[in-house]
Simulated assay, not measured.
Amino acid sequence: MAYASLESPMVGWVRAPERSAHYAAATRHIAILLFDGCSLLGAGIVAEVFHAANELSSSASHNWIYDVSFLSAAGGNITCSSSIRVWTDGLDARHYMGFDALFVAGGKGAHSAARDERLIAWLRRVHANTSTVRPIGEGRSLLEAACINGVQQRDFGSYSVREEREERNGSEANDRLESMKSALMLIKRDLGIDVARNVAERLMPDAGDSLMSLLGDSTGKSPADKVRAAARWLQENCQRSISIADAAQVAAMSERNFLRRFKMEVGVTPSDYLLHARLAITCSLLTDSELPVDKIARRTGMGNGDRLAKIFRKRMKVSPTEYRMKTRREAGI
């Protein structure tokens, strides 16, 4: 069994670099919540991103450094799914003041952790004073249990074995990239696009194009080009839990300016555009798959079956089930 102690390179991720005495920098407090059976895949890359940002900005006149801490319900050693043991700090009332960002680890232990009443109560208290809360993979189940808004519930319970395996493999493949993107957005805000770009290139050089698109690295592009890039991003990511604020960041615009420019260039609001993209995939799945309506709703970013039914009746004038029967009958299926 492997160990990570306070002196190990793993916990070295959390330390801010030494600064000269005359240099005054404010500290951003970042917490990563771990639990037994968690995965280090996403949690580790989040810590590495902030550590790299500290290193890259240590000799420059930037105003922020990052202090990253690993937390768990009881503190002490927790055993990750890879059998690596990591030392963590316990939860206490000091954290009720919140963090600049809180990341919740994923992994097979997330569903058990979501039943820990003390942990869920702590999340509810801390969330109120924390600027950014991001789940990593299965970590969303803890936020669902805490009834924290902005996290879409996913249910793999009645998938076929093959579908479940494909979803799990896809999630694992995306965990590292998605958690890195969330951390990079914070670094871009605090230290600028150049530092965020350098961090991305250092840690994941092969993912540069995807990461730069999210970061809004669109220097030299016209507002129309930026809006079209954001529209493509909305189309490509419509099945995930994304927001219009995320799309505005892709376009490197303020949210207010993005809304105005998007309507001008595309002819509809970003919200309507996103809804149309999700409806198109939903209609295809209703016709071509045997998935239940609730599963389709979750898989296409539409929330749940009840919400999908309301949207369908408003937009399509029929229920999802009626649409499925009608299109299959017309197609002779």
Results as ranks from 00 to 15, higher is better:
192 G>R: 02
57 S>H: 06
294 D>R: 02
103 F>M: 04
4 A>E: 13
138 E>H: 15
255 E>N: 07
41 L>K: 06
280 A>L: 09
236 E>Y: 06
282 T>D: 08
25 A>C: 12
155 D>L: 07
38 C>S: 11
177 L>I: 13
239 Q>L: 12
51 H>Y: 15
71 L>P: 08
62 H>F: 13
31 A>W: 10
240 R>W: 06
320 P>I: 06
110 A>G: 05
51 H>I: 05
22 H>K: 01
101 A>D: 02
159 Y>A: 09
300 T>D: 04
235 Q>P: 04
115 R>Q: 13
237 N>D: 06
283 C>A: 07
127 H>N: 12
285 L>C: 10
3 Y>W: 11
179 S>H: 02
132 T>K: 15
122 W>D: 04
279 L>N: 02
14 V>Y: 12
92 D>E: 00
210 S>D: 14
43 A>Q: 02
33 L>W: 01
93 A>G: 09
256 R>H: 13
299 R>Q: 09
287 T>D: 03
106 G>R: 02
291 L>Y: 11
327 T>I: 08
61 S>Q: 11
257 N>I: 11
161 V>W: 14
274 L>Y: 05
246 D>H: 14
58 S>Q: 13
179 S>L: 07
240 R>I: 01
184 L>A: 03
236 E>F: 05
233 W>G: 09
182 S>H: 11
99 F>S: 06
10 M>H: 12
85 R>C: 03
104 V>M: 03
259 L>C: 15
143 L>R: 04
249 Q>T: 13
116 D>N: 13
222 S>A: 00
